[in-house]
């Protein structure tokens, strides 16, 4: 039990996908203008990441390994992710048309969020079990979502600040993300304990 908890903390905080592994920066910058959008994006990504991590694990263990098809890994994983994203898009559109409109192109682009494929591949690389894969996917997504929402809060504040013209918009966003990443380095070395 404790090791699962540690795995969750380690993936969500210590090895945060965005701030430590620098994966998924495109949606991180793209959908963090408003907190509400960020929350929606966080939930959609969490769903996709967890589900695709589990499905990818299943395909890896029951299809690719038994039939010695490891060379098809990337291809099949992308197929899985694309299907899950398609499903999510339909569901979001049905559940919240407003969110569907505000997320716009970034919703289908979860497919190309490298964090999603990255987590699925890392699961294979680390030889995770089913539960571990699920936690790894969920933990990464949790870390991604929390940071996305926090960052959206910061950007809403910055939108009202008197940022100099040279830094206004994306530049100050990157500076802020950099400083946030600096702060996250405080957790370094925690996995050991």
């Amino acid at each position: 039990m404790q090791e699962y908890l540690l795995l969750l903390v380690a993936t969500a905080v210590v090895n945060n996908v965005v701030l430590v592994k620098f994966l998924g920066l495109c949606p991180f910058m793209g959908t963090s203008n408003k907190v509400d959008t960020a929350i929606g994006m966080g939930m959609a990504t969490t769903f996709v990441l967890t589900l695709s991590a589990v499905l990818a694990w299943a395909i890896e263990s029951f299809l690719l390994v038994p039939f010695e098809l490891a060379f098809l890994r990337t291809l099949t994983f992308i197929l899985v992710i694309a299907a899950v994203v398609q499903f999510t898009e339909m569901a979001v559109r049905r559940i919240s048309p407003v969110l569907y409109q505000t997320l716009g192109i970034f919703l289908p682009l979860i497919t190309t969020n490298c964090a999603v494929l990255g987590v699925a591949l890392l699961n294979v690389q680390e030889g995770h079990t089913f539960v571990e894969s699920m936690l790894y996917g969920f933990g990464s997504a949790l870390g991604f979502s929390v940071i996305l929402v926090v960052f959206a809060g910061l950007r809403e504040r910055l939108a009202l600040a008197e940022v100099p013209a040279a830094f206004a918009g994306a530049p100050i966003g990157f500076v802020t993300a950099g400083l946030l990443s600096l702060a996250f380095m405080g957790f370094a070395g925690m996995s050991a304990g």
Binding site: I59, L72, L79, A83, Q86, F87
Partner: peptide, 13 residues
Amino acid sequence: SLAMLGVTFGTLL
């Protein structure tokens, strides 16, 4: 297997 996967996901979607 790829074809099977495609058909499965296609049906589900």
